[in-house]
Amino acid sequence: MMLLFKILAGLALLVFASLLSLLFEGVDRIFHARMQLRIGPPLFQPFYDVLKLLGKENIVPRRAVAWAFNGAPWVAAATALMVFLYVPIGSLPPILGGEGDLILIMYLLGFSAVAMAVGGFASGSVYANIGAQREMVLMMSYELPLATVVVSMAWFAYRTGMPGAPFSLETYVAMPIWSVAGWTGIFGILALLVTLLFVVPAETGKVPMDIAEAKTEILDGLICEYSGRNLAMFKMAFSLRTLAMCAVVVSLFFPWSLGRILNLSGMAFFVVDFLFFWVKVFLVQVVGVTVIRTTFGRLKIWQASRLYWYQVAGLALAGMVLLSLDVIL
């Protein structure tokens, strides 16, 4: 009975997340356009795009490795989608809570990026090849600050004795990490938050880190050869990764529950928190993705790499040191 419930709830959540990610992308495009004094596309344009692509012919280039080329988009989308099974949505515990934690989420996001790169390498196109190389280099660059953030937070949660497993997202949702930290700790957490916000554009493939898909340089790079169903899957994977990344940021740093503040109980508590969670995700996406991609141009791969290895990793280490000081003092 429990298993059946889990499967049904999981399916419902995955469908909901897919639709919401496309909706948020539509809002992102409108906000982006308005900030540039344009009108922008209709709100549901990403839905139209995906639906149209699903009905289009799927072309596999002659030089492509067919199984890898066709498989990559599905793996990329599926792994990005699976993240939502391990993220607590508001006050609802994650559907597969006990079976995976932050490390698994990082792996799933990383796996999704690798699947995209595999698809690019399998395309047999020189542009896709360059795009895939860039995606791999970019991944290697942002994984260090990302891992530093996760490890520092877990270590801090462990040492301060926050209830729950240190790597489980539920721990951070049950008790905001800000509340256990002293002054140095708060600055440390702020540094980690900024680090994570730096990683968001790279993880989601948006300007200034859309280097692997640079349209005006390498013609959409690793998705250059994709069409039809496969491209629709890649589009889904991109919006799902954006949503998943923002959901992780919210769970780690902005876990406050509106239901608890309003002293709600029962069904209303869960519903309000569920909606409030997505509002927070939306705000993070607007700040971390939309505003950033309107404000900046695209970096080159070595510039992005250098940024992540020196400045952003430095910031993450600073956050780590501040958190350690907080624990030691």
Binding site: Q36, L37, V207, A214, K215, T216, F296, G297
Partner: peptide, 11 residues
């Protein structure tokens, strides 16, 4: 626009 700075292009 060529280096992905669309906002400046539209401006």
């Amino acid at each position: 626009y060529t280096f992905g700075y669309d906002s400046a292009f539209h401006l």
